[in-house]
């Protein structure tokens, strides 16, 4: 653990100013403390943003829901409005980590959670994400948990969070403020970046940015939504594969709108436009769900240890569509 300075900041502008100087933020700390202890993160300055007024959930007049960046995952999971309007989001939160972690971890921090790739977390081994140019140990190593979608020859690390997967299925956007005071909105779908040849750059955030919160637009209300997570044990473990499905059906049971995103299998929370397209206009039944889900693993590149994720992903998506469509 390298020595670092620590200071709380009082507002977003102050936080952004520190970030511009190279400070890392700490909020719930559920990931940051691990990264510090293992020597993976070595910030010179840690700015504590817990005092920023970014907590809580509000509803806009038009029905959009806003979630402050510092809202604890458990508080979001317990929000009745969120659960009623966007169950896929609260279901994903229910299946995230453990109650203790959920009471500490924040919504904004969850978007920025670092990969669980075994080599990223172990400083004794090469890793392009941790040390650019050092090589990717996962390509031919213990890659059971690694990505089959969105990888490159430089990195196949999975972005491990559940929440952004669910957020994509309800068209959520991230509100970001820069040190210069400018605000912008980025769809969650576009927030994370593919590793390419710069796996150390994981999001569209620039130095000096602060996440203020999320907005789930009113137009995403009314979709039948559902989150399915498959993991090695019944609780408190990472997704081997997960799927967020949000469907709008007309009175005849035809799909008029579909959003499907998956986690645990890709280098970023991963939307499946082809599967969505296969569902549009069809009267949903189990066969249709299965046929559409076949496309879930389109473009998958598997390695020695993660080939199982290809069928698992297809079945997870199929299961999520069936359960979202209440065909079970």
């Amino acid at each position: 653990m390298q020595p670092f300075t620590y200071a709380p900041v009082a507002d977003a502008a102050g936080a952004a100013a520190r970030a511009l100087q190279g400070a890392s933020f700490i909020a719930g700390g559920t990931d940051m403390l691990q990264l510090l202890q293992e020597g993976v993160a070595q910030p010179a300055e840690l700015a504590d943003i817990n005092r920023l007024p970014l907590q809580g959930i509000t509803e806009d007049a038009d029905g959009a829901i806003r979630i402050g960046a510092l809202t604890r995952l458990q508080d979001a999971a317990d929000d009745a409005r969120l659960r009623e309007a966007f169950p896929v989001v609260t279901e994903a939160l229910d299946l995230t980590a453990s109650p203790m972690v959920r009471h500490m971890a924040t919504v904004g921090g969850n978007l920025l959670q670092r990969t669980r790739c075994l080599y990223f977390r172990d400083v004794s081994t090469p890793c392009n994400k941790r040390l650019p140019g050092s090589g990717c140990s996962a390509l031919d190593g213990e890659n059971r948990h690694n990505a089959i979608l969105g990888g490159s020859e430089h990195c196949i690390a999975v972005q491990p969070s559940d929440l952004p997967v669910a957020l994509i299925s309800v068209d959520a956007e991230v509100q970001i403020q820069h040190a210069d005071g400018a605000e912008r909105w980025v769809p969650v779908e576009d927030f994370h970046r593919l590793p390419g040849d710069t796996p150390q750059i994981e999001t569209v955030l620039r130095q000096g940015d602060v996440i203020l919160g999320l907005r789930i637009p009113a137009h995403a209300r009314g979709r039948r939504s559902h989150y399915v997570k498959v993991r090695d044990r019944a609780s408190f473990s990472w997704a081997l594969a997960s799927a967020a499905v949000a469907l709008r059906l007309d009175e005849g049971g035809r799909v008029t709108e579909a959003r499907i995103a998956v986690g645990g299998v890709a280098t970023k929370p991963w939307r499946l436009p082809r599967v969505e397209q296969e569902l549009l206009g069809v009267r949903l039944d189990r066969d249709r769900a299965r046929l559409a889900a076949v496309w879930a693993a389109e473009g998958a590149v598997t390695r020695s240890g993660n080939a199982f994720k290809q069928p698992l992903l297809q079945r997870t998506v199929e299961r999520a569509i069936i359960e979202a469509g209440e065909l079970a």
Binding site: R233, S235, F236
Partner: peptide, 23 residues
């Protein structure tokens, strides 16, 4: 998870080396 290239257990922590939980 033993990586023979390094002769090392790669999942040497309780987030990746799983033991049963209450659930």
């Amino acid at each position: 998870d033993w990586d023979a290239r390094f002769g090392r257990v790669m999942n040497a922590n309780l987030a990746e080396y799983l033991v049963p939980v209450n659930a």
